[in-house]
Structure formats: structure tokens, C-alpha cells
Write a protein that binds this DNA or RNA. Structure first.
Length: 418
RNA sequence: GUGUCCAUAGUUCAGUCGGUUAGAACGCCAGGUUGUGGCCCUGGAGGUCGUGGGUUCGAGUCCCACUGGACACCCCA
């Protein structure tokens, strides 16, 4: 019986984990700089949380969630995104009472049962941030700068930014009706997917990739031209602040996020390195969400970004070069007695902070040297009967091939690790 | 959920018109050379050709089904 990982679920192998760590460290450091604190929420949540926030009729909720009954017969779901759990935790722990503005970030696995393809997995990883408690358009812009700063820090600077405003509870219903009547006129000619959306989610019809849909809706009114006073001002302000910090962007009047909780600002950052699934990050404002989930009405903004997609974009710019850790010292043992000596002394050296490796396979000196070289060990000591008797050995610096005498009971690494 | 393409050593691949014992490179193991590793040289291990069925005197090669994978639709990060 050969077990395989589930479809769309991948192992991060030892050869790749250094790169992951590098990316994660860079994300954490940037979150620090922007003053966001990490929040870690459970993978499993009550199913209703997602249905309520993301939207009962969205694709995510209707056909992509890992939902099952636990042993207590409660319907639970593996989180498909990070915002709903974060807001749930915000409300449950009264974070809003402790300070007027909460700035938090998360980093971890998300689950969506879709057909895998390039840049799309069933278990994937996202990092994201949420700022809850302010309706300042500067925070909308911060949610765009933040992921961009991380990308730049990593060396990815080929991306494009699209923004839109999807209005609020005051202007969106009116616009929806307007758009719906327009769509009804051409309904029968739309693609099946779009036809199904005319009633429930007319805005998504405008975001269809179908060429014919595009043609049919080309002249139709866009929500950005039908915003209420407040939303219009907000959107203008977002654009002003984006310009002020020097972020290039395009306004895409058809951009709609696939999650229902967004209001006002919606944005997407995409990369040409990515292929069909080209969104690196997406997000927007959700001024109604906290109340929707049972908290007191509190405005919020956030973004989410895919780590696997970032890794793809990273591979395009540089040959995924993150330094793999290597031992400071490899002790080559010539016989059983020295093998035992190395085993015992490796532990001592490690406690002193010297990364030390020994041979466990009883290999020849030549093989052990090859192993030390393969592992990119900085120094090697060959220990045999003579060395144990005299207490002295030669320590070889692998990069230069030069060696120098050391006392076996006082081994030190000359220079600190780079 | 739909479609297209793909499946041969650990990895990347070659394998002619269907024809004898399925190959290469890299990697791995052992040895030689070297001041004890890298470079070089010699040797070795490693394959149910994804699985099952069919056609044929004969199938890695042709046909069918299944499984797995990649990509695209859809959706989104």
C-alpha cells in the first residue's frame, strides 16, 4: 500500500524549507515595521462563521469548503480564509474594548477543495493583516503598501495594483438594481455562469472573464460612477494617498472580490510571473463585517496574500537562493573508539553553540569527508587513535583546504558564522 | 464539477516502423588519484516501463478503462 499526500496538498521538503523560513521571516519583520501583531486562530471553526461572513451564496461557501460533522455532531469547517476567524477572535476577546484600533496579522494554512492547478492548492498558505477600528482611507492604502513592501524586500517588484470601490449599504443596493435591469436586457446571451449571477450577485457578472460577457456589458454602468457622497470621497482619498506614497495603480471599475463582506475599497495585486492564477494578494474594506458577526459596528480593512504564489514569483526573479543551514564542524572518526568520542563531544560542542555533525554509518574517512563537503561543513576534524592519545588534532577549514592544530578538549570555531 | 495534455531508475529524460538482455546524464554507494572532501578516473546498486484489460507470433511502443499528475475553465491568494 502506497500512501500519497491528498490531492492538492504538498510537502515542504527539507530542501525547500530554508526558503519558506526566509519568506516567513521577511513577512514577520515587515509586519513589525508596520506595527502589526501576530494573531493565531484555530484551523477549525464553526461552519456558520464562514457562511455568515463570506456569504451563503459564494463559491467558497457553496462548493469549496472542507466541512464535516465532528463527533459532537456539530458542523465544523477548516478555515478557507483568515479574515472571518480573526474578526471572530477580535469580537470574542473584546479586543475593541482594549484599544480603539487593532492591527493584527496572521500567517498559516488555509483550505479550499478546488481542482488544483498552477498557483492553486487545496491546502495553501496565506499571510494577511487586518486593521479594525478605523475608517481612515490611509489604512486602506496601508493594506496595499504592506504586501508591496514585503514583495520588494524579497526582490519581487514586477506586479500591478488594481483598485475599485464596491460602495456601501447606502449606494450599492441602488446600483445593484440599476445594473440588474441592464443585465436583464441581455441575460439570455450571457454565459451560464453569469446568467446565474444576475439576480444574486450582479456585480460579479461585470468581472467575468468570458469575452462575450465582456462585450455585452462593455457599456454598462460601473459602481464607481454611482457611489454615494461618502464612498466617493473615500475612494478619492484612497487614490490621493496612494499617489502620495508613490504606488502606481489602475482603477478597474469591474473588480469585485469574491467574498461578500467587502465595502468601499477593493483591491488586487497581481504578478505577470504567475500564469492564469495571477493574484498575489487581494483585500479591501469591510465596515459591516464586525457587526454582521455579532460585535458592535466597527469599520475594518485587510488583505490576504498567497505564499505559494509569492514563491512562484520569487523563483522568476532569482534562483530561489536562501542559505541552507550547514554544520560549523564535522568530526570524522577513523575507528570505533573515536566514533564514540565524537558522539559524546558533539553534544558538548553543540551546547557551546557550535553546530556539529558526526558519522553514524561507520563510513570510511573518505566517505565522511565527502559527506562533510556535501553538507557544506565549515570545518572538519579527523579523529583517530593518535589524536585521542595525544589530545591534539588538525582542524581543516574546508573553504581554503588549510588546517591548523587544535586541542581536542578546547575546540573552538575561529570566526563567527557569517 | 468540465476540458486538454502527460505517466520509462532517486531526479531530468532518450527509447526509431511494434522485434532479442530497456539506456544516458545527474544523484547515490564503493574504490583509485589527491596531503583527508571538491576536479578527474574505475566499478556498483537501483526499473513489475503508473495499474488492469485488449489487439498481436511478439507491446515501454497500438487500443480501452482506471489511478495519479500538469495546465486551462470556474473560482481565488
Amino acid at each position: 500500500m502506497n500512501f500519497r499526500s491528498l490531492k492538492g496538498m504538498k510537502d515542504v521538503l527539507p530542501s525547500e524549507s530554508a526558503l519558506w523560513l526566509h519568506v516567513e521571516n521577511t513577512i514577520r519583520r515587515e509586519m513589525d515595521l508596520f506595527n502589526y501583531r501576530e494573531i493565531r486562530t484555530p484551523i477549525l471553526e464553526e461552519t456558520g462563521l464562514f457562511a455568515r461572513s463570506i456569504g451563503e451564496l459564494t463559491d467558497i461557501v457553496t462548493k469549496e469548503m472542507y466541512t464535516f460533522q465532528d463527533r459532537g455532531k456539530e458542523s465544523v469547517t477548516m478555515r478557507p480564509e483568515g479574515t472571518a476567524p480573526t474578526i471572530r477572535a477580535y469580537i470574542q476577546n473584546n479586543l475593541g474594548e482594549q484599544s480603539p484600533l487593532s492591527k493584527v496579522f496572521y500567517l498559516g494554512p488555509m483550505f479550499r477543495q478546488e481542482r488544483p492547478q498552477a498557483g492553486r492548492l487545496r491546502q495553501f498558505h496565506q499571510f494577511g493583516a487586518e486593521a479594525v477600528g478605523s475608517s481612515s482611507p490611509q489604512l486602506d492604502v496601508e493594506m496595499i503598501i504592506l504586501p508591496i513592501s514585503i514583495y520588494r524586500r524579497l526582490g519581487v517588484d514586477a506586479f500591478s495594483v488594481k483598485i475599485n470601490s464596491v460602495g456601501c449599504e447606502k449606494c450599492r443596493p441602488r446600483y445593484k438594481e440599476l445594473l440588474k435591469t441592464e443585465l436583464m436586457k441581455v441575460r439570455s446571451k450571457l454565459s451560464p455562469e453569469s446568467q446565474a449571477r444576475v439576480n444574486d450577485n450582479p456585480l460579479r457578472v461585470l468581472d467575468s472573464k468570458d469575452e462575450n460577457d465582456r462585450k455585452l456589458t462593455a457599456h454598462m454602468p460601473l459602481i464607481k460612477d454611482h457611489l454615494c457622497e461618502e464612498c466617493r470621497t473615500h475612494f478619492a482619498s484612497v487614490q490621493f494617498h496612494l499617489g502620495a506614497v508613490g504606488i502606481k495603480y489602475d482603477i478597474d471599475g469591474r473588480l469585485v472580490r469574491g467574498l461578500d463582506y467587502y465595502t468601499k475599497t477593493a483591491f488586487e495585486i497581481s504578478s505577470p510571473a504567475l500564469g492564469s492564477q495571477d493574484a498575489l494578494a487581494g483585500g479591501g474594506r469591510y465596515d459591516l463585517l464586525v457587526k454582521e458577526l455579532g460585535g458592535r459596528a466597527t469599520p475594518g480593512v485587510g488583505f490576504a496574500a498567497g505564499i505559494e504564489r509569492l514563491l512562484i514569483a520569487l523563483a522568476e526573479v532569482r534562483g530561489s537562493a536562501a542559505a541552507t543551514p550547514s554544520p560549523d564542524l564535522f568530526i570524522v572518526a577513523q575507528d570505533e573508539a573515536s566514533r564514540e568520542w565524537s558522539f559524546v563531544h558533539a553534544a558538548e560542542l553543540r551546547s557551546k553553540g557550535i553546530a556539529t555533525e558526526v558519522d553514524y554509518l561507520g563510513r570510511s574517512v573518505k566517505s565522511q569527508m565527502r559527506e562533510a563537503n556535501r553538507q557544506n561543513a565549515r570545518y572538519v576534524i579527523v579523529v583517530g587513535a593518535d589524536e585521542l592519545r595525544s589530545g591534539r588534532a588538525a582542524m581543516k577549514e574546508m573553504a581554503t583546504g588549510k588546517d591548523f592544530p587544535v586541542s581536542l578538549d578546547a575546540i573552538e570555531i575561529p570566526a563567527p558564522r557569517p
